[in-house]
Amino acid sequence: MPLTPMEIYKLLPKTNCKKCGEQTCMSFAFKLINREKKLEDCKPLFEEKKYEIQLKKLQEMLKPLEKATETGLIVNEALCNGCGNCIVVCPVHVEKDPRGAGVGKGPTIADPIYRIENGKLIVLNMHACRRYGKSRILCVVCRENCPTDAISFLEG
């Protein structure tokens, strides 16, 4: 299940107190998902007792963030069949490895984003992913072509 800023926002104090350095709680929620801010940055949440239950829920909700890569990617190995659809559809692979992954083969470049190792999808180089860094694009092509939903992203 992708985590949305809205779901997080609902559990925040919603006071727009700006103590975290953001203008609004909503923008704090966005930054949380992008892992540019930590939950601890929201001081009232930890200091005020009335937010105790909300805090617990938030901590639970944000747990998958720890498992995810910096691009928000989570691979559920148990669901992966190693079909390689994700590798072949990846636009970065197509561009950088047109004679390898681009034509359906296993990647032939040294630093592909994905590779199938021992029958399962492995994330090798997420820095090359279009979702990485400041000017990122929320590309979901790999996820969309996984028949078993072994690939998910924290946001959309």
């Binding site: 190693g82 390689g84 083969k105 296993g106 590779r115 199938i116 029958g119 399962k120």
Partner: peptide, 21 residues
């Protein structure tokens, strides 16, 4: 395009991996 490197089977799907390993 399947090969073995550092003891890992590369590019084979799950079925192929089970078969080879």
């Amino acid at each position: 395009d399947v090969f073995i490197e550092d003891g890992k089977v590369l590019n084979a799907c799950k079925r192929g991996f089970e078969h080879i390993s």
